[in-house]
Amino acid sequence: MNAPKVRKEPGADTGNESETNTRELLNEVTEWLQYACGMTDLMAELVYEAETLDCRRMALAFQTIGALLERSVTCTKRAHERVVWEQAQQWVETSATH
């Protein structure tokens, strides 16, 4: 399983929010969520079939799923911020012309 390409979050290091648009952020969210679902399915299958469990590995796997979900939430927040920003800009532009 290949991890999704790590993209810089808007404004993360460069201060340039135009690098990632809303669609790209939402695509990234979908990608991260698909990886989290895949990991969850894999873990469920392994636990179901295992005679013994390695608690350290289980904990690491759950932390990995948590990190994937956390990244998804972060990208979702960024996408929402961008949508709100774009709507505010449109409102200002519309208001200025009237």
Rank of each mutant, 00 (worst) to 15 (best):
M1I: 08
V6H: 09
R7H: 13
K8L: 12
K8F: 06
E9C: 02
G11P: 05
A12H: 10
A12Q: 15
D13T: 08
T14Y: 04
T14M: 05
T14E: 14
N16G: 00
N16F: 06
N16K: 11
N16D: 15
E17N: 09
S18W: 06
T20D: 00
N21S: 13
N21I: 05
R23Q: 10
R23W: 10
L25C: 06
L26F: 01
N27E: 15
E28N: 06
T30E: 10
T30D: 06
W32H: 09
W32L: 12
L33G: 00
Y35C: 11
Y35T: 03
C37E: 12
C37D: 12
G38L: 02
M39F: 04
M39W: 10
M39E: 15
M39K: 13
L46R: 11
E49I: 02
A50H: 06
A50Y: 06
E51V: 05
E51F: 02
T52N: 08
C55D: 05
C55E: 09
L60V: 04
L60E: 13
A61N: 06
A61T: 14
F62V: 11
Q63K: 08
Q63Y: 05
Q63M: 08
I65M: 10
A67W: 04
A67M: 07
A67I: 01
E70L: 07
E70M: 02
R71Q: 13
R71L: 05
S72C: 07
S72L: 01
S72H: 04
C75N: 04
H80L: 08
H80I: 05
E81F: 05
R82L: 08
V83F: 03
V83R: 02
A88K: 14
Q89Y: 04
Q90N: 13
W91Y: 13
T94R: 13
T94W: 09
T94D: 14
S95T: 15
A96E: 14
A96R: 15
T97R: 15
T97H: 12
H98W: 09
H98Q: 13
